[in-house]
């Protein structure tokens, strides 16, 4: 099989078996690096860093980057489309099944159970973001907790939160742009 088709096939498999979001694709990308030598693990680390620091879902960004590095723009487009095809198919099928059982009391009860758990997962993800954003990575917890706090970030956080709570019509993008400018100006 030629490498282009093989790359598409590998991304299709990743899309089919990586359960749990974008970061779940990383082990699959590592395997591609080791099995085929398409890119080095070092290069992959750079690609993950770029994928996390640019807009868009991290998993999509990584597929696009790997595809681009291998085959230019056609590679970027095909790797990404291969990655998302399985999940589109799976979700369209699940939607159809859910439609059929929409009025089922059992399905409703199960979803009522899901929701508080989802809030819990999101809280866990958010607290991890807080940790990276507000704490310096050096120092041991809890002995040096106060020294670990990134005060610039805390001040910015308090200011932006006050602004966002006060003006609830404000677009999230405004907060993102203000924060990016503050970060660049004051060397966060």
């Amino acid at each position: 099989m030629n490498t282009f088709l093989l790359m598409c096939w590998e991304f299709f498999k990743t899309g089919l078996f990586a359960v749990g979001g974008g970061l779940a694709t990383i082990p699959f990308l590592k395997e591609m690096s080791i099995k085929y030598g398409w890119f080095t693990l070092d290069r992959l680390t750079t690609m993950i860093a770029v994928a996390e620091s640019t807009p868009g879902p991290v998993g999509i960004n990584m597929a696009t980057y790997v595809g681009y590095e291998m085959f230019g723009i056609p590679g970027a487009v095909c790797a990404t489309l291969s990655l998302i095809t399985p999940s589109i198919i799976v979700i369209l099928i699940i939607s159809r099944i859910l439609d059929a059982f929409r009025e089922s009391k059992t399905v409703k009860a199960v979803f009522d159970g899901f929701r508080p758990a989802v809030v819990g997962f999101i809280l866990a993800a958010v607290l991890s973001i807080y940790q990276t954003a507000m704490l310096n990575s050096t120092g041991t917890f809890p002995a040096q907790f106060v020294e670990m706090i990134n005060w610039k970030a805390v001040v910015l956080y308090a200011g932006l939160l006050a602004l966002y709570l006060k003006k609830d019509k404000l677009h999230p993008l405004v907060i993102i742009c203000l924060a990016a400018a503050a970060g660049a100006l004051f060397s966060f």
Binding site: I129, A153, I175, G183, A184, F186
Partner: peptide, 16 residues
């Protein structure tokens, strides 16, 4: 630096 700032923005948006 800008990304560090954006992380703080994400914290604010996610809190709400």
């Amino acid at each position: 630096h800008a990304l560090k700032g954006i992380q703080v923005a994400v914290c604010v948006l996610m809190f709400v």
